[in-house]
């Protein structure tokens, strides 16, 4: 049964990479079920993350957000800061797609704090970029400019020409 779970996970990932998001979701839902049977929180977190990703590419942003929220809860339970940051970043982007810019900002700020704690310059840059855009969308142009400047500063520091 444990091997079956892993196989569903591998199958889901393969379908996802092939662009067959519906089959990916079906496989990951089965993987999730088995992860819950075993009380395997780490596997459950991975399944929700993979499900969230597949739903994004189907344009099902609310469903994706729900999976990412569960991913975030599990990341906090597992005390995995990097994965918590990833979940916040995903939620920030998903809420931007949903045009809920205030929620997007909330999650991007959470991502920013963790990226800074973990000294993840790339993550920090992504957070500034996303925050700048979200503030622009809300018409907060001064705030947007501050974040854009921070983005530029860190991009120069990391040597990211693009």
């Amino acid at each position: 049964r444990a091997a079956q779970g892993r196989t569903y996970g591998n199958l889901g990932n393969t379908y996802y990479l092939l662009g067959d998001f519906e089959s990916a979701i079906a496989a990951h839902e089965k993987r999730l079920l088995i992860a819950k049977e075993f009380g395997d929180k780490s596997a459950e977190r991975r399944a929700h993350c993979n499900l969230g990703n597949a739903h994004i590419f189907l344009g099902q942003f609310e469903t994706a957000a729900n999976h990412y929220k569960r991913t975030l809860q599990l990341a906090r339970l597992l005390k995995d800061r990097a994965v918590e940051a990833q979940a916040c970043y995903s939620l920030g982007n998903t809420y931007t797609l949903l045009q809920d810019y205030e929620r997007a900002i909330d999650y991007h700020l959470k991502h920013l704090v963790i990226a800074q704690d973990l000294k993840d310059c790339v993550g920090e840059g992504r957070a500034y970029w996303s925050l700048g855009n979200a503030h622009t969308a809300l018409g907060n142009h001064e705030q947007a400019m501050l974040f854009a400047e921070k983005h530029l500063e860190i991009a120069k520091r990391t040597g990211d020409k693009s």
Partner: peptide, 24 residues
């Protein structure tokens, strides 16, 4: 213009996401 500004950071995330899987 706001729409295109939003898209670039989200697009970059989606470009990365397209090839990302949480492996067993």
């Amino acid at each position: 213009r706001t729409q295109s500004l939003q898209v670039d950071s989200v697009q970059r995330w989606m470009d990365d996401l397209r090839h990302m899987t949480e492996v067993e």
